[in-house]
Every structure is written in structure tokens, then in C-alpha cells.
Amino acid sequence: MNWNSLDASIAPLDLRSCLISRHGRMEYEHYRNQRTATDIAKINSCTKSVLSALICIAMDLGLVPEAETAAADFFPKLASDPDPRKRDITLEHLLTMSAGFEWTEFGGRNSFPRMTRSPHWVDFVLEQPLAYAPGTRMEYNSGISQMLSTLLTEATGMPTARFAETKLFGPLGIEAYEWETDPQGVHAGGFGLRMRPLDLLKFGQLYLQRGQWDGRQLISPERVERSLRPALPSDSHRQGSYGWHWWSDSYAGDAAPDRASLALPYSFARGYGGQYVYVVPDAEAVVVLTADQGKKKQQPVDVFREHIAPQLAQMSIM
């Protein structure tokens, strides 16, 4: 496939990187400059999908219990809370962000910025009231991701980043990274990871290959499938549905309603400021986009849906 036309489309956007691989081979590779190719940079909430992978690996190893387990087994404050509904929160609810906490992520009384200014991030989350019954609504919440990172640290007996080095980054050949921690030294579950674009591509390829890498099954196919499977529609973002800390959507282009079967499904990790990892099974493709949109007062462009998905959709039906 010739992607030369993509150069002109993305040139005005000043992306940090745009990588496209198909069938495990790089087909398009663009960097703002050579330093962008080698420097680590913030991936923001794409961190959540990396954390999801680590939780799945820990479940496969029997270190973290099954998703139906009560979260109160790890967080006793949930069991002692005056609201009995908190006892019903499960690991599944944490992974799908449907625990029911009253949360406004980017502003207001219960929010991600206020959490990061508190002395104990997880306690801040646990103390929030419930706005919904667990499992009934997805509400985007980086505090829940911090709960999962804390849980992983407790269950594995090692820091989240160390577990990643042993079970995920090491096998994928990812050596250059940085990961922020909370005041208790727990690695941030919802943000704070810095990686290189090529390493993000490896991460996406792992999911395209249903958890297999160089002949090793790093994540069981069943947990990969469950992670990417839509669990609840998103009330917090325009696009798609939410699985286990992964987004999902489909692209139908100009297809008429009666041609919905031609829609191209995809899953993606998404980070503030234009960080994306797309996994497109029907096109055997992985797409990585990194940008600095958070620093610029410009109308964000959906590069994937406007410039890449139309070509991938065409390939998938050829």
C-alpha cells in the first residue's frame, strides 16, 4: 500500500510521530525530527492500557484473582464504608471504570487534578461517594487506575514498573522508559509513563497477535479478547465503548446503513494531547500517533479516522 499521500495530509498537524505497520511490517514511518524517534515522551492515558496488560498477565499467573473478585479484598475501606454498594465493586468494575464513583476527571470537586494534589491518591478515591450503582455506567476515572496499580503492587510483591520490566517490557525489548509515582511510591496507573513511538508500536502489535510475541504467550488470548471487548458505552468521551482500560469503535466511512457489515472495528489506547495506539485486526494493522496537541490552541484533528482508517477499510475488503 502506498501511503505517500499521507505526507501532505499530516504535514500541517506537526505530529511528533505517525507509524503504520501491517502484517508485522512497517509500511509508514514519520517523525517530526530524528530526536522524536529516539526520545521517550509522555503517553498520558495510554498508560492505562499498559496497566491493563500487566493486570492481565498477573491474572494469568494467578497473582491477581479473577475479575469477579470484590475490590474490598484489596481495599478494606470499601467494606467499612457507610454506603453498602461499595462492597459490590469488583475488579471488573475497576477495569471497565464502572465502579460508580462520583468523578469529574478534569475538574470539579472529585477530579484527577485534585487527586494528584492530595497526600494519598488512593485514599482520595476510596473516600468519594458513589453516584451510580457499580456496573451500571462507565465514568472515566484515573483514580480507579491508581487503585489497580496499587492492587498490582500488593499482589505481585513488586513495583508496577518492575513487574512490567520482568513480564512485558523485557520480552518486548523495551528498555527506555520513565514512570511517575504517587506520594506512596506507587507508579501512576492512569498516566505518567514515557515511552518511544516504536515501543508503542510493539505494544500494539502484541495485542494484534493476541498476546503472543516471538513464540511466547505473554498474555493469554482469552484475556486479550476480554480486554478489547466493549463492556459499556462511554459517557465521558465522544468515541466508542470501553473495555478493560481499552477503547473500541468502528469506522464505516460512507457506507450506507444497510452496509454496516463493512464497518472496520478497531481498539485503541488513548492519551491526552494526541497519543494513540490503534489495533485493527481486519486490516492486520497497528497505528501509533503521538502529538503535542495539549500545548497548542488548534482544533484537534482525528488523524486516524480522517486519513488512515479509510485506506485500511479499503484494504480489508479487497
Rank of each mutant, 00 (worst) to 15 (best):
I308S: 01
P233C: 09
D60K: 03
A176N: 12
I20D: 09
D282H: 15
S248N: 03
R117Q: 12
R35Q: 13
N2H: 12
F268K: 05
A99S: 04
R117F: 13
L94C: 09
V50L: 04
V286L: 05
F163W: 11
G24P: 04
A269V: 01
H93N: 00
T69V: 11
Y276S: 03
L78C: 03
G274E: 04
L15Y: 07
Y242E: 03
S149I: 01
A283C: 14
R32M: 11
Q34R: 14
L201Y: 14
T136I: 01
V277A: 15
Q146M: 07
G274T: 05
E27Y: 07
M318G: 15
Y276Q: 04
P84E: 00
A164F: 03
F124D: 02
D249C: 07
L61Y: 14
D249I: 06
I144G: 00
R259T: 13
L218C: 06
P134L: 00
F304H: 15
H237T: 12
P230T: 04
S142K: 01
E68H: 14
T166M: 10
M138I: 15
L78V: 01
G100N: 04
H93S: 01
S45P: 07
T181N: 08
Y276E: 08
M59F: 08
E165L: 12
F112N: 13
S142V: 00
G294H: 12
L232K: 05
W244N: 09
E284G: 11
P82K: 00
G107P: 14
I308Y: 06
D60M: 03
I40C: 10
P82H: 00
M59G: 05
K202D: 08
E175Q: 14
I317Q: 11
R87N: 00
A255P: 10
N33E: 09
L218I: 14
P159M: 06
W179T: 15
I89W: 07
L201H: 12
A58Q: 07
E127N: 13
S142I: 00
L200K: 09
E180T: 10
M195G: 05
S118R: 00
G211C: 03
F191T: 10
I57P: 06
L232Q: 07
V125D: 05
L95V: 04
R85S: 08
S236K: 06
I10Q: 08
F75V: 00
Q275C: 06
A291V: 13
F169E: 08
Y251I: 11
G62R: 11
G135Q: 06
E165V: 09
Y207H: 10
T160A: 04
N110V: 09
S267R: 06
R22H: 14
A72Q: 02
Q314C: 13
M115F: 00
Y140C: 02
D254W: 11
Y140L: 02
S49E: 06
V280C: 10
S145R: 01
S261A: 14
D14V: 11
Y278G: 09
Q298M: 13
R162M: 11
G294D: 14
S21V: 08
M318S: 15
R25M: 13
G143K: 02
S267P: 13
Q293R: 10
Y242T: 06
R87T: 02
A11N: 15
A41I: 09
S98G: 02
S149M: 03
Y276N: 07
P300M: 14
Q299K: 13
F191K: 13
D81K: 04
S49R: 04
S45A: 06
E92Y: 12
E154S: 11
E127M: 11
I144N: 01
A8V: 10
D73I: 11
S49F: 04
